[in-house]
Structure formats: C-alpha cells, structure tokens
C-alpha cells in the first residue's frame, strides 16, 4: 500500500516545522474536547427563536449589511458581472443612503486587480479565495504562491480552504503547517480559513479544525465554500463561536467568524447575529470580527429594511439584480 498522506511524499527540501508550531498544534488538540450534538443543536435553535422587532430589527439588519462579503465564485464570472456587483457593494440601496456599504467583495484571484480598481477608496475590502479553492487538492507550494500573488494583486483578505483530505486522515500537522505557511504568505492581508464543515462529518471535528486553524494563525474561521451540499448552519456556527471564545480565553486573541453559504434571507441573518451576540458579546458585533458570506441575502435585507421604513413590502422589481 502506498503511503496514505502527502507529508511522506513531500519534497526533501521542505522546511521542518518550527517547534513552536508543534507545541501550538498540541495546544489546539488538547482543547479539542467533544461536542454534544443534540445539545448544541438545541441551543442554536432556541437562540433562533428570538423575536426581533422594530428598532432592534432595523439595527440588526443594517449591521448585517455591513458584514456581508458579497460573493460571486463562478466559472462564468466576467468583468461586467463583477463590476455590477462592486457597484452594489458600495451602494446597496440607491434609494436609501442610510444603508451602509457591505464589508467586502469576494471573488476569484483573477478578478482581484480589477475589483481593487472598481472599489477604489469606497472602504469595501477586496477578498479573494485562494489555495486551490474550493477543494484545496493541489500542492502546498502552489497554494502558497497563489496566496502571495493574490495579495500582490491587491487582495485585502484571503479566504483559504483547509486540506480536508489531510484532516480526515488524521494528518493535523499538515493542515496546521499549511495554514501557517499561507498565513505567512498573506503578509498584511487578513486570512480567513475555510473549514468546509459540510465535509467534516461531525461537531467534534468542527471544533478540532477550528482550534487548529486559530492556533495556526487564522484571523477568521469560516464555515464553508458554498460549493458542497451542506454549507453554514446555525449549530455549526455556534460550535465555532464557542471555540473562538475558548481560544480567546486561552490566548487573549480575538478571532473573527464567517458563516457562508445558504444564508439567503434576512430572518436567518438576524438569527446568526443573535447567536453571535449571545455567545461572544458586543465586541464581536462589527465587520472586523464577523462576516456573512452571501450572494442573494442582500436584496432580502434591503426589502425588509424598506418594509420597516414604509410599512409595506415592495415588489422585487424595486431592488436591483446584479
């Protein structure tokens, strides 16, 4: 039988993992106790039952807009399509100047330079997926190089994927090292680490992967690529938020959270904010600490905001499709 993991096949020149990294991996694994699935799901669903009305709803929805990573990640993306998305990101509702701009536009690396220019000094960040997105099934050297070039092209934020194959086969060291190397390649850019929770099978693994990512240097941990059957869910997000809380208590470092995929309506977005607010508290309630990866969510929020303002729902034709 051939060796099961790529570590063994790594070229001889590959640098040895610094000892401090190894110790950190051990720290991560030590904190990776079990998660009770039934109870975690129960807690998430009880928080989702919070009833948000009037001022608290409007406040939450505007905050949600400012946290959106407006995303398009398709093979058929063109400059025209992406340019329209950038306009939307900067000014989501032309009729209502009180609606803030979104947090970032999230695109593939090839679009980075173009988007950088399109967004200008609007304050909207450029986020790009990298590291062989979405599967992550390529060589570490290429992942690192892709990251470096994407940052050089102007990305403020890199959304990387972990090597789920390595993770599921138990090669946590490889997962850890790769994140650390990509982090280094990011330089000043912020690193979001996508765990692809839909492929990790259970909450125990989600917690473990969250801790490995944080100890390896992630600035954000993110649920999903949006490219597999199961993307962000409330319970998975809760488990990750709890890992962030434990990491914060252990190290004093605040890590951000980004659920992505499947968050397509305003009510659900508010539930995520409730989950955040009642798990990590006020200090995480801003776009520096929480993002929502979404493509269709924005218009539903705009529709709800307009309804709160005018008292009536408007037709979908009054909101731009970009």
């Amino acid at each position: 039988m051939p060796p099961m993991t790529e570590t063994v096949l790594a070229p001889a020149g590959r640098s040895l993992t610094p000892v401090s990294f190894r110790r950190s991996l051990n720290d991560a694994l030590e904190m990776a106790h079990g998660v009770d699935a039934v109870a975690a799901e129960e807690r998430a669903s009880s928080l989702a039952k919070r009833s948000l009305k009037k001022d608290s709803k409007v406040w939450g929805l505007k905050l949600a807009v400012s946290m959106i990573d407006l995303t398009t990640l398709e093979g058929k993306d063109t400059r025209g399509k992406v340019w329209a998305l950038c306009r939307k990101a900067v000014r989501p509702d032309p009729a209502d100047p009180e609606v803030p701009h979104v947090a970032a536009v999230c695109i593939y690396p090839s679009m980075v330079a173009f988007v950088k220019e399109a967004l200008g000094d609007s304050g909207v960040h450029v986020a790009a997926v990298a590291t062989g997105f979405p599967s992550g099934q390529t060589f570490t050297e290429i992942k690192v190089e892709e990251t470096r070039r994407t940052v050089a092209a102007g990305a403020d934020e890199i959304d990387m994927v972990i090597d789920r194959g390595a993770f599921l086969s138990g090669d946590y060291q490889k997962v850890f090292d790769e994140i650390a190397e990509v982090k280094e390649a990011c330089g000043p850019a912020h690193l979001k680490v996508i765990l692809e929770t839909g492929e990790l099978a259970n909450f125990d693994q989600v917690r473990k992967a969250s801790l490995i990512a944080m100890y390896a240097g992630a600035d954000f941990i993110k649920t999903s690529t949006g490219k597999v059957a199961v993307n962000a869910t409330l319970p998975v997000t809760l488990v990750m938020l709890e890992a962030i809380r434990d990491f914060y208590h252990a190290t004093g470092k605040k890590i951000g959270m980004k659920p992505a995929g499947g968050i397509s309506n305003a009510k659900l977005a508010l539930s995520y904010l409730v989950l955040l607010y009642e798990t990590l508290g006020a200090e995480w309630m801003n776009p520096d600490m929480f993002r929502i990866g979404a493509s269709t969510l924005l218009n539903d929020i705009l529709m709800q905001l307009r309804k709160e303002k005018t008292g009536a729902y408007q037709s979908g034709d009054y909101f731009t499709i970009d």
Partner: peptide, 9 residues
C-alpha cells in the same frame, strides 16, 4: 447594552 431587543410581548 449594544443591541437592545425591542419588546416583543
């Protein structure tokens, strides 16, 4: 409190 939930009786 940062986020006051409005009364929802």
């Amino acid at each position: 409190m940062l986020w006051e939930y409005s009364p929802s009786p």
